[in-house]
Design a binder for these strands. Structure first.
Length: 480
RNA sequence: CGGGGCGUGGCGCAGUCCGGUAGCGCACCUGCUUUGGGAGCAGGGGGUCGCCGGUUCAAAUCCGGCCGCCCCGACCA
């Protein structure tokens, strides 16, 4: 059916690129590693932004904007931070036709500039907590770009908060990880595993890094959001202090957290199928597409008049509905056009439907002619809303079943290696290894420790690599 | 930066070995017939063959140099 899309089974990476091209989500740019986000792809990102921004506001955060140019010396103030980011910085050396006195770093993230400002704005415990977020672009010079998943410039949001105590900052770190988990489950229909990162995978400059990890259709993991407890690392580097109730200077405790346009890649790879994209209704720019069908002029007149009424009724109730009234392409073409783009619901309206006062519907996640259904004009809005809800739930269920069926356990490293050679997915193991053990794991198998899940039964067992006593399990997987 | 592959209308490719007026599919334009799962027929427009140099009567094709892109590895939200 989808003649221009390689099947997932044949070549998942090629399938991913084909879907992005056919659904017109993005295009390559003249600059290697950069990506043009096309209107339909950007519309999905706008839906993600809307959902998250509302959640941030609801948890008391305010949006602000900090500059993209950062004095190079700022990056160098936090030892671990500079070491982590130095290899991937873009640096501006000239401006206004002259060499700059101090080179400017194009932000790879904004901890430094924000702390510079926080140190001016925060004076007393009464100024805390400070809860800010910004929507911005960032640049990290990447060796191996992949559309949406890893591009040199990408769009994201970064939350930055300052608190009086460690407990408050840690609570904020976990609260925002929870916001990401809720967004993933409720809006993106993507099951995720919230967990703690190992030292090796930790953000450069953080005390602790947490993430939500999602499983893609090929069993690989995608880090889909991160939340860091920064401790006082940046506060010390930038002297971000406040006067407490006892008139004593204290460093603020901080968190930062972010998700990026990578989420668009996650939506593609979690829900997509061989016919293209499948969008969860919450994130779909178009939730319902209405395709009119007619032969004669008089049929066309009647069908279009009814179609407009239906569109207005649904749109009036907040449904994102699109009437595809193009006369230059056939209905069959339109079916495929919107299918590739993942529109959750399609309604056909032709003379036969009009005569019996129904639309013929088709859900994107239940393909085939046999799965078509009809909805009477009188119950259109109620049934449309219910169908969208059902599709949203079914996509989450489907993704969850796949994740469950592709999650397995290994007691020893040998057992893991033997099975991982032919089987992807998430492997649960007991873990107390070192960074060196992790290094070896990656060298030998390409898999990494994705996270130590927060939600796990207390217990202990022998570490699958070292054999030593481990008190928690970790998820091992190949990651993007 | 190491290994592999590729540069030919907008996209995907053939042609290169063996030099002789640049082709195919899709897309695009016009007309007629069509329209409930990517319509058919007829006609039409569009290419300095990645760049520079060399060999030759003649180069997409042979020779030399350069550039770019993709895939695999080291880095990563």
């Amino acid at each position: 059916m989808a003649e221009n899309i390689t099947s997932q089974k044949q070549d998942f990476a090629q399938w991913y690129q084909d879907v992005i091209r056919e659904a017109e989500l993005a295009d390559s740019s003249p600059v290697r590693g950069c990506m043009v986000i096309r209107p339909y792809g950007y519309a999905i990102w706008e839906r993600i932004q809307d959902s998250l921004d509302a959640r941030f506001k609801a948890t008391g955060h305010e949006n602000a904007y900090f500059p993209m140019f950062i004095p190079q010396s700022f990056i160098q103030k936090e030892a671990e931070h500079v070491e982590g980011f130095a290899p991937e910085l873009a640096i501006v050396t000239h401006g206004g036709g002259k060499q700059l006195e101090e080179p400017l770093v194009v932000r790879p993230t904004s901890e430094t500039i924000i702390n510079h400002m926080f140190s001016k704005w925060i004076g007393s415990y009464r100024d805390l907590p400070m809860l800010l977020n910004q929507w911005a672009n960032v640049v990290r010079w990447e060796m191996r770009p992949r559309a949406f998943l890893r591009t040199t410039e990408f769009l994201w949001q970064e939350g930055h908060t300052a608190h009086a105590t460690e407990a408050e900052a840690r609570a904020e770190t976990m609260r925002m990880l929870g916001v990401y988990r809720d967004f993933a489950h409720e809006n993106a229909a993507i099951p995720v595993i919230p967990g703690r990162k190992t030292d090796r995978e930790k953000f450069a400059g953080a005390v602790e890094t947490y993430s939500i990890e999602a499983m893609m259709g090929n069993g690989w993991a995608l880090q889909s959001g991160t939340s860091h407890y920064l401790g006082t690392n940046f506060a010390k580097a930038f002297n971000t202090r406040y006067l407490d109730e006892n008139n004593e200077q204290q460093f603020v405790h901080q968190s930062s957290w972010g998700v990026s346009t990578r989420l668009v890649g996650a939506v593609i790879m979690v829900h997509g199928d061989d016919s293209g994209l499948r969008l969860p209704p919450d994130l779909a720019p178009v939730q319902v597409v209405l395709v009119p069908i007619h032969k004669t002029d008089s049929e066309r007149e009647q069908v279009m008049s009814a179609a407009c009424r239906i569109r207005d009724e649904l749109a009036g109730a907040g449904v994102r509905v699109r009437l595809d009234d193009r006369t230059t392409v056939s209905p069959g073409f339109k079916f495929n056009h919107w299918e590739v783009r993942g529109v959750p619901l399609r309604f056909e309206l032709g003379p036969r439907d009009l005569a019996s006062r129904v639309v013929t519907g088709s859900a994107r996640n239940r393909p085939g002619r046999d799965a078509k259904f009809t909805i009477g004009f009188d119950s259109l809005l109620a049934e449309t809303t219910a169908k969208l809800r059902t599709i949203q739930d079914e996509l989450l269920d489907e993704a969850r079943s796949r994740q469950d069926s592709m999650t397995w356990e290994a007691a020893t490293y040998d057992e893991f290696k033997a099975r991982f050679e032919s089987e992807s997915g998430f492997c649960q193991v007991w873990w107390n290894g070192s960074s060196e053990d992790e290094e070896r794991l990656q060298q030998e198998t390409k898999a990494t420790i994705r996270c130590i899940p927060l939600d796990q039964e207390p217990g202990e067992g022998p570490c699958f690599m070292t054999g030593g006593k481990a008190v928690h399990r970790a998820i091992v997987a190949r990651a993007y």
